[in-house]
Amino acid sequence: MSEVNQIEQKTDAGREKSCPACAVAKTVAVKIGYSLVVLFIVTIVAFVGLRLAPGDVTTQIIDPARAAPGELEALRIELGLDQSMLVQFWNYVSGLAVGDLGQSLLTREPVISIVATAGIYSVVLALAAFAMIYVVAIPAGILAATLRGGIVDRAITLLASVMMATPNFVLAILLVNILALQAGLLPVAGSGTWRHLVLPAIVLACEPMGFATRLVRTSYLEQAGAVYADSMRLRGLKENLIRWQHIMRNALLPVISLAAVQVRTLVGYTLIVETIFRWPGLGKRLVDSVLTRDYFLAQGLTILLALVVVIATLISSLLYRAADPRVRTA
């Protein structure tokens, strides 16, 4: 209803901009609050979900076949697993509030220290992949768009499609076979030097890179044909100015939203890649903790990973607001 929209705008334009900073702070606060709610629900779901399964960690610590009668039960009480779910939940959440993530039920290590050591590896890997994705995708996408129809464009688009189609574990296999086993250029697995990072990062970045390239290309093409671009040419602005100041800025807006989505994808696929390359990150620890019913560790990791995704989404939406004035005053 255009009639209503017009009025909305007039009211907006007429309104006193009393405190723009306050408005921003308010929006940020609302978004953070919302994220916390989401995170809380995730916590509950993780908590309950993990406890749905039969059995618990005590069988991992003490072999039930050789346990003395009552020994398993005593261990259970010691670990606090006999209390009602509500009590356990309350204890956990109050612990969370002060930053205490509990201890691994299996190894008694504080979850925090596990997170710290393994977390660094995962972060390094993810960051490397993330950087790789955009350092390549943005220039490649723009290049393909500006040379539309030419051979460079077709090559880039094709390559991007192939990258999107290759499952990362398949790529891992191929690269390991060729580069590591045959040519001996890079180590097969493990960690320790920057060389160990190369293959996992490439494998992780491959599919998102292809997707991002195509998105940048499409977005750029869309903007290049926009009315304002022609209008600027008609006003005699230089083509380079139009391209770099205007088209590119508009074209990269969707990339901000995409980045958040890809963080989510990366967090998920890190698991597989870490397993293949035996990269000592959080992914492997998570799988193990779930399978051994090591609740606190599993919960802690779950919440942490969800937190990463939520933060990425939050940052992306704030960045988008900063970049696009239409969102700010809509």
Binding site: M1, S2, E3, V4, Q6, I7, K10
Partner: peptide, 8 residues
């Protein structure tokens, strides 16, 4: 005109 309320 627009905003007059006629569509409403």
């Amino acid at each position: 005109e627009s905003g007059s309320g006629k569509s409403t």
